[in-house]
């Protein structure tokens, strides 16, 4: 190995242990021992012997996009950003629970989700109310059997003035409860 020169090996690398890899190029195999390894293989995954791909904790990039059949609640998804999040997740194969304080808007979004062949249900719940949220989650688990993803999108920020004549601390509490 020359000094100040990068040695280039052609082939695919796989780990034997944390200090050794084998580089395979066709039928040729070469074992390389090193102190440190830098994995810069982009979207081509490299399997580590001490952290196998189990599809749950260690996933490959393609696996990260495999959400088929998962259940997500998106709060405030009757319209706006929440609706866009819900539709995007539905396109990735996720079944969506549309939560909104406006039941009509929630049902409309749920219909849109169903039109792209995903399961969807509309749940009216006020996310600033703890009991409402618990009851919604229970309903979802009872009806759909599980809850994998919860996206707290709903938010509110109408006025930033907490003077008594603009709503005072009640308004402050409401914003904090929502968010």
């Amino acid at each position: 190995m020359k000094k100040n020169k990068i040695t280039v090996k052609k082939g695919s690398a796989s780990f034997l242990n944390s200090h050794m890899i084998v580089v395979q190029n066709g039928s040729e195999k070469e074992t390389i021992q090193a102190d440190k390894f830098i994995i810069a293989s982009g979207s081509e995954p490299v399997q580590l012997p001490f952290a196998p791909f189990d599809g749950e904790w260690v996933v490959i990039t393609k696996g990260m996009k495999c959400h088929d059949g998962k259940i997500a609640i998106v709060t405030g998804s009757g319209r706006g950003i929440g609706k866009a999040i819900a539709l995007r997740l539905a396109h990735d194969g996720i079944n969506i629970v549309i939560n909104d304080i406006n039941e009509e808007a929630a049902q409309e979004t749920a219909k849109e989700i169903e039109s792209i062949r995903r399961k969807s249900m509309a749940e009216k719940a006020d996310v600033s109310n703890r009991e409402d949220v618990f009851s919604m989650v229970k309903q979802v688990v009872d009806h759909l059997g599980q809850l994998d993803i919860m996206i707290s999108n709903a938010g509110r920020c109408r006025q930033l003035c907490f003077l008594p004549r603009f709503g005072g601390l009640k308004l402050y509490d409401r914003i904090i409860c929502f968010d």
Partner: peptide, 17 residues
């Protein structure tokens, strides 16, 4: 120290250099 860089793309070659 002997360092092995796996991948010769823009991340890998910058790391190697």
């Amino acid at each position: 120290t002997h360092i092995v860089v796996i991948g010769g793309g823009p991340a890998g070659y910058i790391a190697a250099i």
